[in-house]
């Protein structure tokens, strides 16, 4: 015997979908056409031909995406004021904060490099986090923020240019490089940035693209 709540949960295992939408999906990697199937929370639909994920139903997707975006935003804001590394050499002390990498490259005749580092380590992560927050928070109340479809489109386009994890490895390599000539310590900023990295990844992966777009479309209609 199944209880009533169980029935209800099973009846609504997929996210709400717009009616007029076609009942097929194509694999992004081999273009094989598939009929849409309802999947349980935590499951994923794979391509029959090439095995890539076509869509997945993430658990508590909206809530998770929103909460992880908020924590990622807090981490990112905190990171701007905390030093990453402290270096002691010959009685002199220097501290490295995130923005220093950009400003010092700009100062030393490498403006293009400085600008790209600014984009990869600060602007892209901020845009991803704020974009997710901007689109998912109103969706919790079933509403669509104005222009959210453009924001979400650019969030997914900006995703490969978010290089927080690469920068973290870069910090570790620089520590090893400098350890021979100076006394280097990891500081709080490093850990906050690592937290921002994990939360951003969890926010983006927390909700499937297809689900986010379906929800946006529904909220736009109503």
């Amino acid at each position: 015997m199944k209880s009533r709540t169980q029935h209800l949960r099973e009846a609504s295992h997929s996210w709400p979908q717009p009616d007029k939408q076609g009942d097929t999906a194509a694999c992004l990697f081999c273009d094989t056409i598939h009929d849409l199937v309802d999947i349980q929370e935590g499951e994923a639909a794979y391509c029959k031909r090439c095995g890539n994920i076509i869509y997945q139903n993430r658990r508590a997707s909206l809530v998770r995406a929103t909460c992880f975006s908020i924590s990622a935003l807090i981490f990112m804001l905190v990171v701007q004021f905390l030093p990453f590394l402290t270096l002691n050499a010959a009685g002199l002390q220097r501290e490295l904060t995130l923005i220093n990498t950009t400003t010092s490259l700009m100062r030393t005749d490498a403006p293009i490099l400085g600008a790209s580092v600014l984009v990869f380590t600060i602007l892209a992560p901020f845009f991803l986090i704020c974009g997710m927050l901007y689109s998912t928070t109103p969706l919790l109340a079933g509403r669509c923020a104005p222009g959210a479809e453009y924001v979400v489109k650019w969030v997914y386009r900006a995703e490969p240019w978010n290089m927080v994890e690469v920068f973290l490895l870069g910090v570790l390599v620089s520590i090893l490089k400098l350890a021979q000539v100076a006394d280097v310590h990891i500081n709080a900023g490093f850990w906050a940035y690592a937290g921002a990295m994990l939360c951003t990844a969890a926010a983006i992966a927390g909700i499937d693209r297809r689900e986010l777009w379906d929800r946006l479309e529904l909220a736009n209609e109503s």
Partner: peptide, 15 residues
């Protein structure tokens, strides 16, 4: 891209 970041970090720390 790690190389570019390491250059940026070294440039800003070793001054």
């Amino acid at each position: 891209m790690i190389d570019i970041f390491v250059v940026g970090i070294l440039v800003s720390l070793v001054q």
